[in-house]
């Protein structure tokens, strides 16, 4: 039997992700100050704080309503570019969860792919633009590959996590095509993209959490 996550389980993941983001504040802010205006961490952190406040409501919801709620909170609380992108991602993912009571392996892959597509469409962006997509895209490709190869879920979560982290690290070498870093003379080359790093924190945490459910 593989993992089966309920809306209550997803809330447990949100708590862990919030903690992971919270504890890396200084690091992410320093990354952002190098190429942006230094507010990415404080915005995304407030977003997760608001999600935590909404947990009593969310854990009683269907997965579909829970994901829509997360999307709305992230969109309005985080604001700026990250807010609308995470909002679009969760609303895109909600569609995958219509009429579902639990998230299983294939569903999780579909959720991440729906998030990726929503972010690429809303941001009019592709892999290689030095954004959060450069973390999410390789993670989704890896996940699909694992399913095609029928790898065990234990192996899958390790590989997907690795793909996300390596993807985020790969942004250091990239030239920025979107966002404030693209106005820098060197297009931010040599600096990690803070949005890709915070995306990696979330995927890492999610994969580690799933591993505890196997």
């Amino acid at each position: 039997m593989g993992f089966r996550l309920s809306s209550k389980d997803y809330v447990e993941y949100i708590k862990l992700a919030a903690a992971k983001i919270h504890e890396n504040g200084d690091y992410v802010t320093a990354l952002d100050a190098a190429t942006g205006d230094g507010d990415h961490w404080s915005n995304i952190n407030i977003g997760f704080e608001k999600l935590i406040e909404a947990i009593p409501v969310m854990e009683t919801m269907s997965l579909f309503d829970e994901f829509k709620k997360i999307g709305m909170i992230m969109m309005s609380v985080i604001g700026g570019s990250s807010g609308v992108l995470y909002g679009s991602a969760y609303m895109g993912a909600a569609k995958v969860l219509k009429d579902k009571d639990v998230i299983e392996n294939q569903d999780m892959c579909n959720i991440m792919e729906a998030m990726l597509n929503a972010i690429m469409q809303r941001g009019n962006a592709k892999p290689g633009f030095k954004t959060m997509i450069d973390c999410l895209y390789p993670a989704v490709e890896c996940y699909k590959d694992c399913i095609t190869k029928a790898l065990s879920e234990n192996e899958t979560v390790v590989l997907v996590k690795k793909a996300a982290v390596e993807g985020a690290q790969s942004t250091a070498a990239m030239e920025a095509i979107r966002g404030r870093a693209c106005y820098q003379a060197n297009k931010g080359v040599g600096h990690l993209d803070p949005g890709a790093i915070t995306m990696a924190y979330q995927i890492e945490t999610l994969m580690d959490y799933i591993a505890t459910k196997l």
Binding site: D39, M75, I78, G79, G80, S81, G83, V84, G87
Partner: peptide
């Protein structure tokens, strides 16, 4: 109005 130097969100 968004926050300082940050776009307003769609609901606004």
């Amino acid at each position: 109005a968004g926050n300082v130097f940050s776009s307003p969100s769609p609901d606004r």
